[in-house]
């Protein structure tokens, strides 16, 4: 199965193509507010390198976040519209799982981090189960201290923020904390690889209803919810 994978949830935007479990080509760029400008050009570049047209792929996979809200909206909207336009199946993949997948050979708890702004991170815990990863517990959004409080065993911290907050993590966890390579990031090919089992299981997503995983509400939504809850309590 040929799958085009797209992930624009992180600062590093990435598009890759796989053919079965073979990575055909992968392309990444540092997106500084240019995800929208470069996404189709980069998609075209990846397909041309592989000598394929969009119609010749069998499916699309897209990182749905968590990550930059604007970035992930570009990736998800482009991927689902491409899938709709050429009538191919699509699968939304957690951008955190795509980071954790890079360290799937490690036997300890995997803790991928994505920047959430204001000194917060998005995270989740994964454990390798054979060829796949199993998520343990819920997604996390908050500061490093809150995250490390949940860690009671040796864990491998992955992704760029792991290195940014390395000192704070080690300060809380000491020897329990291990760190992956600073280059651990999501990749289009990995996102595509993660979709294979989902496609095989007939668990593709609906291109119309697919939306990003925001893991947070806008400030206005939060205020409104507070106001409405208070009004309900009266």
């Amino acid at each position: 199965m040929r799958v085009l994978g797209i992930d624009t949830a992180n600062l590093t935007n990435t598009i890759g193509l796989i053919d079965g479990d073979r990575m055909v080509t992968d392309f990444a760029w540092e997106a500084r507010d240019n995800s929208l400008q470069r996404i189709i050009i980069s998609t075209d570049l990846v397909l041309k390198r592989a000598g394929l047209t969009l119609a010749e792929i069998d499916g699309l996979a897209v990182g749905i976040g968590p990550g930059s809200w604007t970035g992930v909206r570009v990736g998800v909207t482009v991927a689902k519209t491409l899938a709709y336009a050429v009538n191919k199946p699509i699968c939304g993949i957690s951008s955190l799982e795509a980071i954790a997948y890079q360290a799937r050979s490690a036997s300890i708890l995997l803790c991928p981090l994505v920047d959430a702004g204001r000194e917060n991170v998005y995270s989740a815990f994964y454990r390798a189960r054979g060829k796949t990863l199993a998520m343990e517990g819920d997604y996390y959004v908050g500061n490093i201290k809150g995250l490390t409080e949940r860690v009671k065993e040796p864990a491998l911290f992955l992704g760029k923020p792991a290195h940014l907050y390395r000192r704070a993590i080690t300060g809380e966890l000491g020897d329990l904390a291990g760190f992956g390579s600073p280059s651990d990031t999501s990749s289009g090919c990995v996102v595509a690889l993660l979709s294979l089992t989902r496609f095989a299981a007939g668990a593709a997503d609906d291109a119309f209803s697919l939306v990003p995983l925001y893991l947070g509400e806008s400030l206005a939504q939060a205020l409104l919810r507070k106001k409405e809850t208070e009004a309900g309590d009266e």
Partner: peptide, 24 residues
């Protein structure tokens, strides 16, 4: 209307939800 005006982040999210259905 619930917010008393247009909230940009809410609008952006709603567009992603609706766009495919609207085009179809």
């Amino acid at each position: 209307a619930r917010f008393g005006g247009i909230v940009p982040e809410v609008a952006s999210r709603k567009h992603v939800e609706a766009i495919g259905y609207v085009i179809q």
